[in-house]
């Protein structure tokens, strides 16, 4: 059973291991900062399918199957499958779940879905309701673009605050057996809406939520010294700046340990992505391809993943409504040799 620390932080008494993970990403992502560190690279955005949507689903399935293979498991042996994506009605994940055959929770937290899934998955396993769960999220640049903005072939200039939806998917297998990486804590986010209406500036819409969650975590846990990394999901350059500034105003100097996944994936100048990457796939691939391996460089390390989501709907954006933001935090610990849970 877990415990509640302070006002909002959760600690799991039985740390939930991250048994394995896998990432799949597109060609643009493979040409970015993380280069060839993805498990699977999709060289064509259609991935041999007849639509972007099918391509996204296939990519997600590949990521999940690669992660399962690494864990030596099959889909039907999972007790739970949790996931989400950016397509309407999270259809890609539901199609993946169709191939998995495990009990399924479809989640919509926009780009925070990975952290949301990790929290809920950990709660399920820590609560003793199962032994293994998979969390999987994805996004596809072109599928998201046509749904949220313009047709992909339309010649429009993107603003400097706009972010580039990552074509990528990450799958994480949670397990109640000793693992080197484990999820030991979490802090579920609240909706924070600061009246941002510009759907090309989602970093600003989410940054306030990230600040709310990080401050709540540090207040409850008071462990800034012990944290090696704080990484936000996809705030991008502008959101990152705001978040950093506001944390400083609150008295938290996070400068040497705070990073944003959206800024770690592309070469900002050469790849014409403006403020950085975004999407469900962004934190999913950067966490797996960069930060989890990075944690293993020390014998013990702690990382706070803050999945950020801009919960907008294209319809309400056109109606001039504001964008609600959310941020879920997950504490991931690494211990060489693993811990027993």
């Amino acid at each position: 059973m877990g415990r509640r620390i302070g006002a909002r932080a959760l600690l799991f008494d039985n740390p939930v291991g991250i048994r394995s993970w896998a990432t799949a990403a597109g060609r643009k992502e493979a040409g970015g900062k993380l280069g060839q560190q993805f498990d699977f690279i999709i060289n064509h955005n259609q991935f041999g399918e007849k639509s972007w949507e099918r391509a996204e689903q296939k990519m997600q399935q590949y990521a999940l199957e690669l992660a399962l293979e690494k864990a030596g498991l099959y889909g039907h042996q999972l007790d739970f499958f949790l996931g989400g994506d950016l397509l309407n009605q999270i259809i890609a994940t539901s199609y993946t779940a169709r191939t998995v055959g495990a009990p399924y929770f479809g989640l919509y937290g926009a780009c925070s879905s990975l952290a949301e899934g990790m929290i809920l998955g950990s709660c399920l396993l820590d609560g003793g309701f199962g032994k293994r769960a998979a969390v999987c999220t994805s996004s596809h640049h072109d599928a998201a673009e046509r749904q949220l903005r313009y047709p992909t072939e339309m010649g429009v200039q993107r603003t400097l605050s706009a972010q580039w939806t990552v074509t990528g998917s990450g799958a994480y297998i949670l397990d109640c057996a000793p693992c080197e990486w484990s999820i030991t804590g979490a802090l579920p986010g609240r909706i924070v809406d600061r009246g941002i209406k510009n759907s090309s500036d989602m970093g600003s819409a989410m940054a306030a939520a990230a600040v709310d969650t990080i401050c709540a975590w540090l207040e409850d846990m008071n462990d800034l010294e012990q944290l090696d990394y704080i990484i936000t999901g996809d705030l991008g350059k502008i959101g990152y700046e705001i978040c950093r500034k506001q944390l400083l105003e609150q008295g938290y100097d996070v400068i040497d340990k705070y990073f944003d996944c959206g800024m770690q994936i592309y070469h900002a100048e050469d790849q014409d992505v403006h403020a950085g990457g975004s999407g469900c796939g962004c934190s999913a691939v950067v966490l797996g391809a960069k930060y989890l391996p990075l944690m293993a460089q020390k014998s013990r390390s702690r990382l706070l993943l803050v999945g950020t989501g801009a919960l907008l709907s294209p319809l309400t954006v056109q109606q001039g409504e504001t964008i609600p933001g959310i941020a879920h935090a997950v504490l991931i610990e690494y211990r060489q040799g693993g811990v027993t849970c």
Binding site: T159, L160, D193, R194, G195, S204, K237, I238, I242
Partner: peptide, 19 residues
């Protein structure tokens, strides 16, 4: 809410790069 959000929105303007 408008009052509360004003400071935040001002802050955004300071960090948003000019085209």
């Amino acid at each position: 809410q408008k009052k509360r959000d004003k400071i935040y929105q001002k802050q955004i303007k300071t960090v948003t790069p000019k085209a």
